[in-house]
């Protein structure tokens, strides 16, 4: 695929996918046809589709960051989160849907990383839609076998002696990593802490932002 679309940046600064500005594709025509047939047969409505798109757009890694920041500030909440991730999320107003959420905690010597080797399971009801790389063949194939190499490609350097735990999200659970709270953040408020929590740090392919002393 030629990289000739970089002058067409979306409002967020990402390039638009080529599909948006090229001729109607076969699969796009299938989407239109399927959608119109479902509407004609009153299986769904335009309003339902629009509401579903809005609901998905409203979910973002900020939800997960709020969860992590609360866990950093409130040990009792963290305990509840580790015990039942779905229930603890609901405490903050995030309904993670029918799939159960399992939170896994990074410690001084354990680093967790999440992958779905079978398809692309992701805690979408908490964090929004997954990044492209999470759905890629390369990430899904390699992470269970060479997680350290994958982590190094993401720029994650871990202390000597760290044990890696890879979680393959194969069935009905969804996972979120609780990264370790960065040093030097003792005086920060919960909302300040939430700004340190990146999407990748909750997948395990990143670490939270650090604060300069």
């Amino acid at each position: 695929m030629p990289h000739d679309h970089h002058d067409h940046l979306s409002p967020s600064g990402h390039p638009y996918r080529a599909d948006d500005d090229t001729a109607l594709s076969y699969w796009q025509s299938m989407e239109i046809a399927v959608r119109e047939l479902l509407l004609e047969k009153s299986i769904t409505t335009p309003a339902e589709i629009a509401a579903q798109i809005d609901a998905m757009d409203a979910r973002s890694p900020a939800n997960g960051a709020a969860l992590v920041a609360r866990a950093w500030c409130d040990p009792d909440f963290k305990e509840r989160l580790l015990k039942d991730g779905s229930a603890a999320s609901r405490e903050l107003g995030f309904d993670v849907g029918p799939m159960l959420l399992i939170a896994v905690e990074n410690t001084a010597n354990i680093h967790n990383i999440i992958v779905c080797t079978l398809c692309s399971c992701y805690p979408r009801n908490l964090l929004g839609l997954p990044p492209d790389w999470y759905k890629s063949r390369a990430y899904r194939s390699r992470t269970v076998k060479e997680p350290r190499k994958v982590l190094s490609e993401f720029g994650v350097a871990l202390p000597e002696g760290t044990h890696i735990r890879v979680h393959d999200s194969t069935a009905d659970m969804r996972y979120v990593v609780i990264p370790a709270r960065p040093n030097g953040t003792d005086k920060m408020s919960e909302s300040e802490l939430a700004k340190l929590v990146t999407r990748d740090s909750m997948i395990g392919t990143g670490l939270p932002k650090t604060v300069s002393a």
């Binding site: 492209d132 994958v150 993401f154």
Partner: peptide
């Protein structure tokens, strides 16, 4: 290698997801 290109979802992709 894992390509970390990221694209915004286009309307047709969001519609597939919603369906």
């Amino acid at each position: 290698p894992i390509c970390d290109d990221q694209h915004d979802f286009s309307l047709w992709e969001k519609r597939v997801d919603a369906l």
